[in-house]
């Protein structure tokens, strides 16, 4: 089984499927990665998103804030995929909505 000991979330945005795999400890994300057929330019900004999410509270608003912030600073273009979509995939893994 892939990413066996990870929490798994999946959300289908208009731009593609976002699968998230994460580990959580004491209300914070301790590890996270994504897989999916979405588009995001520049591509390597995905590493900044995951780096910044580590240590973030497992609260919807905190997660969305981090993703939105990286979108702004890196001038991310991702047709059909929004920070909200990433947040939904992650929150599904955490078990909230």
């Amino acid at each position: 089984m892939v990413f066996e000991d990870y929490l798994k979330g999946i959300y289908k945005s208009k731009g593609g499927i976002i699968r998230s795999f994460l580990k959580v400890d004491k209300g914070k994300i301790t590890d996270i990665t994504f897989s999916g057929d979405f588009f995001l330019l520049p591509e390597d900004a995905i590493d900044l998103i995951t780096q910044r999410l580590i240590g973030t509270d497992t609260e919807k608003d905190s997660i969305r804030y981090v993703v939105e912030d990286v979108y702004k600073t890196e001038k991310i273009l991702s047709p059909g995929t929004t920070p909200e979509d990433f947040t939904r995939s992650i929150m599904q893994a955490i078990g909230g909505t």
């Binding site: 892939v2 990413f3 699968r19 990665t33 994504f34 897989s35 999916g36 057929d37 979405f38 995001l40 591509e43 995905i46």
Partner: peptide
């Protein structure tokens, strides 16, 4: 694979 796809997942 697309850039964001992981072989073992897909």
């Amino acid at each position: 694979l697309g850039y964001f796809q992981k072989a073992e997942v897909e």
